[in-house]
Amino acid sequence: MTDTLKDFSIDRRSALKCMAWAGTGVLWTLVGGVPRAFALDDAGAAAAMASGSSAFHFVQISDSHIGFNKLANPDTAKTLTQAVEKIKAMAVQPSLILHTGDITHLSKPEQFDTAAQILGGFSMPVHYVPGEHDTQDEGEGKLFLERYGKGTKGTGWYSFDDHGVHFVALINVLGFKPGSMTSLGADQLKWLADDLSAVSSSTPVVVFAHIPLWTIAESWGWGTEDAAQAMALLKRFGSVTVLNGHVHQVFQKVEGNISFYTARATAYPQPAPGTAPEPGPLTVPADQLGDYLGVRSIDTVTGTSKLSITDSKLSDKV
C-alpha cells in the first residue's frame, strides 16, 4: 500500500503565468510546479504533447546507515539493497536519485565502500548530501567529499538543473555549535542567494539537505537554526519542495509555496517526538521492520496538473 501525501494543483491562470521560456523549437510550461515540454510547430504554436512523454520522475532515499548492526536492524546493507531493488523495479524509471545523507553510520572508509557498491548499479545519476554520520572522520567530511564532492562549493553545497527543475543541495551537518541546533552558516546562505538570483521565479525549485530545514523537535536537534533565512530567499518561487532525512519517518508541512517533507530511512525507524525521552534507533518486531523503512517517489501525474509525492514502504509489494 502506498500513501500519497499531498497533491498540488495549480489553477490555469497560474499555469499560464508560469509559462516559461520558448527555446529552439521546444516550449517548456510549468504544470503543477513541474515543467512540461511541447514541441513547437513552424508557426511557433505549441503542438499537442504526447501523453506522458515528458513526465519527470525522481526518487529520494535516505539514512542508509551502513555499518549500523544493532538490534533495530542488524543488516542495513540488506535493507539498502532492498530499497535499490525496489527502485530498479519501478515501472517508470526515475531520471535521478537523491540520497539525503547518513549513507554510513560512522564515516568509515569501508562503510562508504559498501554503500558505493550497493548504490553503484544505477543507470541514472545519484546526487548526495552528507548526514552528520558521514562527517565524523578526522578530516570532518573529507572522506565524503573525496567520494562525492566533485564540483561542489564550500563544504560541499551545489546546485544543478534537470528537466527544468532547479535542484539545490545544502549542507547542514557541519555547522554544529554546542548547545544549539545545526546551521547552514553565512557563507552558504550567501552562495544560495547568489545561486538563486540567476533562477526565474517560475522555475520549480527542489532543495535537499540532511537535517530538516524546519524545526520538528528543537530539543532533539531536529531542525536548522538559520533555515528561515534560506526560506526567505526561496519565498518568491512559485513551487519549492524541500526534502530532508535525519528523522527516519515522514513528516510534512506546507508554508505558502514551500512544501517540506522528511523521508523514511532505509536503515531503522526512530521514535516520534514526544513518544520517547530521546531519539535513537527504535526496535520494532523484525517482521515489521519493512513497514517502517521506505523510498519516496516524486513525479508528475500524467494527464493532470499535479505533482505528487508518494512514500512507499519497503514491505509494499511492487
Binding site: 552528520e132 565524523q136 554544529f176 555549535k177 554546542p178 541546533m181 536537534g221
Partner: peptide
C-alpha cells in the same frame, strides 16, 4: 565539550 552528532 559537546557531541558533534547531538550538539545539545
Amino acid at each position: 565539550y559537546f557531541c558533534t552528532f547531538h550538539p545539545k
